[in-house]
């Protein structure tokens, strides 16, 4: 008689059922529905119509472009600033424990709250940011009202909100680097800047992988902050895929919305998969 495993497969059933029904089934169904004219009442097969529309209508194509710009910009800034802040906050200076908490706190605050707060702070005439700038004689821009600036203003707020997480991950990564490396580098006469580029940056790579990938996925999927601050406006100037998906859903164009969802999925896969393979290969090389 075969002895039954003490780790039975039925342990997987409760979670597996929920995951399968509520996550996998809709994901698979989305590929079909993205090929239909779908509204709250019926779904008719439409071939690739929705996808054609997504890339030919300027206001939809703009969302695809903005998604990439937003994700690359915020991910880049979070990675660079996160590493610099982590180095600063592990240098043994006065008050670094307090500052670690301060930089991390926005990560835990409601995104909608942060968005609405900065919407007020970025008001062109009465917002605190432009009021403060006027004290030093600078005429602050319409952060959220200027169409060519709105997306970047939201990106800045996203960095403000998320850089604490990158910093925290980098601090954990820096803690794993043995001080011996720095001592050896010092004995060889390396300057502080050389130590940073030749010791810190290569050895903190696992943390870099985590920060880059997490922030890219988060940036590509971001919805709530943009929705709270601009709703994709002015016009469609700060629309991203996630806000387009919501707008088309609200307008009753379910098929178009679902096509946006599939495009978002493909964009994430195309960006993240090669990148994580590249990061992993580099790690072996070291």
């Amino acid at each position: 008689m075969q002895r039954r495993s003490p780790y039975p497969y039925w342990f997987l059933l409760p979670a597996g059922t929920i995951f399968f029904v509520l996550f996998l089934v809709p994901t698979i169904a989305s590929f079909y529905f993205s090929l239909t004219y779908w509204d709250p009442f019926e779904a008719r097969f439409a071939g690739f119509e929705n996808y054609v529309q997504f890339f030919s209508e300027p206001y939809l194509a703009r969302g695809v472009m903005n998604t990439l710009i937003f994700a690359l910009l915020t991910s880049g800034l979070k990675t660079v600033l996160g590493l610099l802040l982590a180095v600063l906050l592990t240098s043994g200076m006065l008050g670094q424990g307090l500052m670690r908490s301060v930089v991390f706190f926005p990560v835990l605050v409601s995104t909608i709250g942060v968005g609405l707060l900065f919407q007020e702070l970025m008001h062109p005439t009465e917002g605190a940011i432009n009021v403060a700038l006027s004290w030093v004689g600078i005429d602050g821009p319409g952060w959220l009202t200027n169409p060519s600036l709105a997306l970047f203003s939201v990106a800045l707020v996203d960095v403000w909100r998320g850089v604490g997480l990158a910093t925290l991950i980098y601090i954990a990564g820096l803690a794993t680097i043995s001080p011996d490396y720095y001592e050896a580098a010092r004995i060889d006469g390396a300057t502080r800047i050389q130590q940073f580029w030749r010791v810190t940056v290569p050895l903190v790579r696992p943390a870099t992988t985590t920060v880059v990938i997490l922030s890219l996925i988060g940036g590509l999927r971001l919805f709530d902050l943009i929705w709270a601050m601009t709703r994709g406006g002015p016009g469609f100037s700060s629309d991203v895929l996630a806000s387009t998906i919501y707008k088309q859903y609200q307008a009753g164009f379910w098929g178009l919305s679902t096509a946006g969802n599939v495009i978002l999925f493909l964009v994430i896969a195309v960006v993240i998969l090669p990148l994580s393979l590249w990061f992993n290969r580099k790690e072996v090389d070291l």
Partner: peptide
Amino acid sequence: IPPAVVPTIWL
């Protein structure tokens, strides 16, 4: 993978 929102609502 981002959740497929509208198909999830349908389901």
